[in-house]
């Protein structure tokens, strides 16, 4: 849990799954790779991303909000942790 302190800001990513169309910009452009393609399918048949932070591997959300900016479908909400 010590790695944690390296990051000034932390956040979690909430995915509005029904809006997602599976372009994977978010997964691709995440600088810390905390998003992965999920196994599940939404009602339109797309695999939405899921938040898979792994602190051991330094895959930690740093609240850069880039996934939000790249998402063409308004499907991502980055929620910062206090």
């Amino acid at each position: 849990m010590t790695e944690n302190k390296k990051f000034k800001r932390r956040a979690t990513v909430r995915v509005l799954e029904e809006r997602c169309k599976g372009c994977w910009y978010c997964v691709n452009y995440c600088p810390t790779k905390v998003l992965v393609v999920s196994e599940k399918l939404n009602s339109k048949g797309y695999h939405p991303p899921e938040f898979a932070e792994n602190i051991e591997e330094n895959k930690v959300c740093i609240a850069c909000h880039l996934c939000e900016l790249y998402c063409p479908d308004f499907a991502i909400v980055v929620e910062e942790l206090k």
Binding site: E18, R19, C20, K21, G22, C23, Y25, K44, Y46, H65, E68, L69, Y70, C71, P72, D73, F74, A75, V77, V78
Partner: peptide, 28 residues
């Protein structure tokens, strides 16, 4: 991000654009 939702007609989402279409990025 929260305010942005208020500027969207969210009841109309998901929108008509194809997966990966850039128009949504510009609108955002």
């Amino acid at each position: 991000r929260r305010e942005e939702e208020k500027l969207l007609r969210t009841e109309r989402l998901p929108h008509v654009w194809c997966p990966g279409c850039g128009i949504g990025i510009v609108l955002n």
